[in-house]
Design a protein around this nucleic acid. Structure first.
Lengths: 139, 139
DNA sequence: AACTGACCTTCGACTAACTCGAAGTGATGG
DNA sequence: CCATCACTTCGAGTTAGTCGAAGGTCAGTT
């Protein structure tokens, strides 16, 4: 099964711009062209791209992803390094989720605060106290 | 209590560059200067900054944060709009956490895959199958 | 008095990762 | 034959920092 760049963009939830950017930067080495020079994506390309999207979304840089892909094309000897990379990515992503949950608690407090203000028609206290309870615990 | 830019950077876990950037862009309107033109941060500035860091970390753009701060300085009439903004940020952050958890599952699978390869000294299959099980469910 | 080092300042250049628009190519369809 | 559509390349623009150079102020030391 093969796909156009727009179909791939749709499937992966990213823009065609990004896909071209990844391709231009050598991150989709197996993508073919048809007789009109249009990119043709196979399922195996989508698998690559899926990994790329996953690693980007969890904060890995383009340079590091390129390094990872180079390792993957270099055979079995690189498995330990790839393992280390994924372990690191795993740890970073876990931390990122924790951070987001903490920030979410702050936002939850804000939402509740404004909801209360609107409910009770209390005057909104001026800026300092509006921002006062930044470290609200909320879980 | 007042703080230098380096103390604030340390406390907030961001760089001094970012703090200057926020200040230059009008996001820290109450920061004072001492007699040598150095920035002096009060606790109320840290409260502002804490909100800024929270909103940035959850993906709000600088432009939108500036709008939010402008609303906050505009008095009670803007509470409903601020409420809507925080509701939206809340929803986006929840979604972002879900997405990250999904990506984490993919990474977990990769880690397990490489661990198995290293344990069993199996040859690493070539790229397509290496990337095969991208949609592993893992929760 | 001059020097050193620790802080801070501004300014302008640079970066990553897109994002977009303009101009062009080639197949399809009325 | 011309329009429309889907794609192409290329170069410029955007966001949110990140950094280094050059310089001011002060405290302590030689």
């Amino acid at each position: 099964m093969s796909y156009t760049i727009h179909e791939v963009a749709e499937k992966m939830g990213i823009s065609t711009y990004s896909i071209r950017y990844y391709h231009e930067h050598g991150m989709l080495p197996f993508v073919q062209r048809d007789e009109n020079n249009n990119r043709v994506f196979e399922d195996s390309d989508l698998e690559w791209l899926n990994i790329i999207v996953c690693l980007r979304a969890t904060g890995m840089s383009i340079a590091r992803i390129k390094h990872y892909l180079a390792l993957a094309q270099d055979g079995d000897d690189t498995v330990p390094e790839r393992y280390e990379m994924m372990k690191e990515q795993q740890a970073q992503t876990l931390q990122e989720i924790k951070d987001l949950q903490q920030h979410l608690a702050t936002i939850n407090f804000k939402v509740a605060h404004y909801a209360a203000l609107m409910e009770n028609h209390e005057p909104d206290s001026f800026i300092p106290s509006d921002l006062q309870r930044k470290t609200a615990v909320n879980h």
